[in-house]
Simulated scan of single mutants.
Amino acid sequence: MAKMVLLASYLAINSVDVSAYTSKIELSVEVDEKDVTTFASAGWKEVLGGVKSGSLSATFQQDVAASAIDSQMWALLGQVTTFEVRLANGARSTSNPGYTGSVLIKKWDPISGTVGDDAEVSVQYPTSGAVARQTS
């Protein structure tokens, strides 16, 4: 079984590679659990999958220079935009799939921290629509 250490993962938001600002990426997808148990279930719970949803979480190293992460994200606040994440920053392939979709940029904390902290911004955005796994 292959093992991997995340050293150079890839994150694009609004078709812009923001990997150079990113120190953490997490894409989570799930399916609602719908209880369909009946008296014929013989005392066992039965479930089906319902609506799918997801979220994209990231931690960015803050940069307020012109055209840097702060101005990019500020311009997207309140919009639904595209994203792509990959385990490695190489091209999509069967061993490096890209997960793509859209997210709502619903929050941006341009300043957060205490004396001596790294200037970081942690975000969590809900997906909007389908998330796809692409290998090419």
Rank of each mutant, 00 (worst) to 15 (best):
G101W: 04
S112M: 10
E46L: 07
G116S: 09
L48P: 04
L48F: 11
D32N: 04
A91I: 15
K34P: 05
V29R: 13
G43D: 00
G50C: 11
Y125R: 09
M4E: 07
L11P: 06
S67G: 03
E33G: 01
S19Y: 02
S15L: 13
L11R: 13
T82C: 01
T127H: 08
E120L: 14
S122L: 03
G129S: 08
T37R: 02
S53A: 02
A65L: 08
S71A: 10
F83K: 02
L6I: 13
L104T: 00
S112W: 08
D17N: 15
K52P: 01
A42H: 02
L27E: 06
K24H: 12
S128L: 03
A91W: 14
A12L: 10
G101L: 07
P110S: 08
S28Y: 05
G90T: 06
T127L: 06
W108M: 15
G98T: 02
K3F: 06
T82K: 04
L104E: 00
G43E: 00
S71T: 09
E30H: 04
S55G: 03
G101E: 06
A119V: 10
E30N: 07
T127V: 12
V5D: 12
S136P: 08
L48Q: 13
D17I: 12
T81Q: 14
A91D: 15
N96D: 08
G113V: 05
F39N: 12
W74N: 10
G98D: 02
S71D: 07
T59F: 05
Y99S: 11
D109K: 14
A65V: 04
A58Q: 11
I69P: 04
Q134D: 14
P97G: 07
A68R: 07
L27T: 10
N14F: 05
S102G: 04
S23I: 14
G116L: 06
V103W: 12
L77G: 03
V64A: 12
A68M: 09
K3I: 07
V103D: 13
K3A: 09
I105V: 09
Q79M: 10
V18E: 06
N14V: 06
L77P: 02
A66V: 14
N89P: 00
I13K: 00
P110R: 08
A88T: 12
D63W: 01
Y21H: 03
V131P: 09
S95P: 07
A91N: 15
P126A: 05
G78L: 03
Y125G: 06
T114M: 15
K45M: 03
F39Q: 12
T100Q: 15
W44R: 11
K24T: 12
F60E: 11
T135N: 07
S67E: 05
A8C: 10
A20V: 02
E84F: 00
S53D: 01
G78E: 05
V103A: 13
G98M: 02
I105H: 01
L87V: 13
T38D: 00
V121W: 03
Y10F: 14
A8R: 14
R86F: 01
T114F: 13
T22E: 03
S55Q: 05
S95G: 12
D63I: 01
P110Y: 08
Y21N: 01
V123K: 05
I25K: 06
A65Q: 09
N96V: 07
M4K: 08
P126V: 04
S57A: 15
V64M: 09
L56H: 11
S102T: 10
F39H: 11
